[in-house]
Design a protein around this nucleic acid. Sequence first.
DNA 1: CATGAATGAGCATTCATTCAT
DNA 2: TATGAATGAATGCTCATTCAT
Lengths: 211, 211, 211, 211
Amino acid sequence: MPQNEQPFTKKGGHKRGKDGEKRDRILSAAISVFAQKGFYATRVSEIAKAAGVADGTIYLYFENKEDVLISIFRDRIGKLVEVLKREVKKADSVEDGVRRIVDLQLGLLEGERDLAEVITVNLRQSSSLLKQYAVPLFREYLDVIAGVIARGQESGAFRQDLNPKIVARALWGGLDGIALTWALTDADPSKLRRAAQQYATLFLEGVVTRP
Amino acid sequence: MPQNEQPFTKKGGHKRGKDGEKRDRILSAAISVFAQKGFYATRVSEIAKAAGVADGTIYLYFENKEDVLISIFRDRIGKLVEVLKREVKKADSVEDGVRRIVDLQLGLLEGERDLAEVITVNLRQSSSLLKQYAVPLFREYLDVIAGVIARGQESGAFRQDLNPKIVARALWGGLDGIALTWALTDADPSKLRRAAQQYATLFLEGVVTRP
Amino acid sequence: MPQNEQPFTKKGGHKRGKDGEKRDRILSAAISVFAQKGFYATRVSEIAKAAGVADGTIYLYFENKEDVLISIFRDRIGKLVEVLKREVKKADSVEDGVRRIVDLQLGLLEGERDLAEVITVNLRQSSSLLKQYAVPLFREYLDVIAGVIARGQESGAFRQDLNPKIVARALWGGLDGIALTWALTDADPSKLRRAAQQYATLFLEGVVTRP
Amino acid sequence: MPQNEQPFTKKGGHKRGKDGEKRDRILSAAISVFAQKGFYATRVSEIAKAAGVADGTIYLYFENKEDVLISIFRDRIGKLVEVLKREVKKADSVEDGVRRIVDLQLGLLEGERDLAEVITVNLRQSSSLLKQYAVPLFREYLDVIAGVIARGQESGAFRQDLNPKIVARALWGGLDGIALTWALTDADPSKLRRAAQQYATLFLEGVVTRP
DNA sequence: CATGAATGAGCATTCATTCAT
DNA sequence: TATGAATGAATGCTCATTCAT
């Protein structure tokens, strides 16, 4: 995750490297603290402490506390969307694509649980300013999902009487609902994986028994 | 519910009485303001103003600001669960039961959009104290849904390879996801109702085309 | 201490009896609560509760919270001064008079410990308004003591190179100092009485051994 | 006590440092304001203004308002005890020791009248928390006095039928009583000094004429 | 007279942000 | 750049006092 793939740019440009490193440390710390305590309950000094910098230093890299949160969305969700796109491309079929989406999103809870929590939890605490930034990013994420659905509809694999956007939201929401209850009751990872499998089946085939 | 010893004085005077009329006004005002600005950004004085009472009056009915939020959950979700149970009982079939759940939950967004927003949004802002109160109520709500699923499985109407609790969470989550995006993009009610129909179908039959 | 010596004035004048009774109840309650918690930490509602009346009732008998405290001084210290005067008159000698003063003041801690505490403690919390009322009453009390000293000086029993007022303050202060430490460490009454005896001796004969 | 690594920069800049300069300014300001208005009537903002700092700055050095008061006791009474011990050691005789105690305690009223008022007045306003801190310090002060008395008894200079602790309390109380009335009636310093002399004589020799 | 629900001014405390070093 | 002491605006909550009943 860090950037050890730029072995000489250290002082070449305008104070990169060290800069980006500290900025990143602040963001990572913020993700961790926001996840634990929520945006409002988090003190700027707590982020600073977790990042190992002085309080004032945060203001060298971010406008203010809210900007830290927004930056998390901007920096990290962008990457998530990339991963999602890549993963979806690897799929053999649209059904496989859906299963990959499910696995990826719920798998995120294990790999980067804090980030997942920040995205899930803090998306809803947002002031209007935050909405302004978070919603477009969120929409892009949903659009990737909706794209898979639409492709399935075109190929005839998926039923065509459903709006792909609604289906995408439902898919995301269902995953989020499972994740939320899982997070609130801190169950073990194996249960989450099992839930993921069942959810994919449910989503694909429905709850009604096939004739 | 109290005061049956004054069958007509109802409109006589304002009767400073602790009969809950003022408490209710505060709760309603709080729902409205919390929905607009979120729990943390809401000032107690704003609730007071919206309720048409003095700041201090709020503390005659509630411990503190958080208690107002908790009380919303306690008072209102309890009623929601009642309505849900009643509605589910009226259903001819489990499939109808599912459709009623979908309609009810999304219908709530129209009738009491603010309440829905508070429940949806603030469930996740919670301090641990709030979780303590909100989670059990939420669980009860989910249990009613899970009960419908389980009954469907017993009757053979629903597939039996899925855990009813997971299915319940997925159902709720999908509805919540649709509601969230609808709320964030202030779409019109008719779209929401159409989404509800489609979602019910999706949930029941799955996204994959039937052979 | 109550007024059972007016067997028929009950409804004769203008609402006496009942009135005075309630006013007295409030004062007694206030003495008790002030003694326990101090003037500032005492809530008017606590006085009301202790007196068994409604909060608002207190304002029918007193201007405000401070007036309750002032009234305690006015009503109760006045009586104390009377008792002091009476006691002093009974004395055979000025030496006996001093011993009676000592016994009376420290004895007060047992009989009306709360009142003593209010006088001792709250005299010093006073706003300037309170000082205005308390100081004159206090001075009257000191004057009685100073009178005894002066009489002793006139009769030749007491040395004449000391200002009676200073001696009076010293006598009162020494008693107060003993009372304070006794109160702070809640020792038993017998110790207090022994201390009283020793103090009287000290005051009369000094700490230096007689040749 | 820290900063021995900058032997002359003392007046260089204001050195935001936590070197106690600001802490001291706050304490001094608090002594002054507490003395004038009492602990409860004093606003934190008043202390801040008097100290020439922002309100929030006070909370960088003290837990809360009460901690400011406690710190006054802790910081200043400790020093008083030191001075008292030193002064007592210088005494030629126990009688001289007593006279020094008297002079010192009443002399304090001139040099640091505000501090004396705070100690005298606020010792009695205390919440239990404050008592917890103030009482032990007070006791130490009394113990020094009691030590002088005890030494006088051992040497035969003082009568042995009196408990040294009681005598110590009486001595302190008498001084406090004189101080209180002097403070309440803002007499002039010369009178206080005369009172001190008379009080020492009274304490040593008693009020009764010697045969 | 008595009540106690309602009031709202007042205050301790917090914490995001700044800026001298 | 980095620091962290200092700032002071902002706000939750208390409680003496009022007044309609």
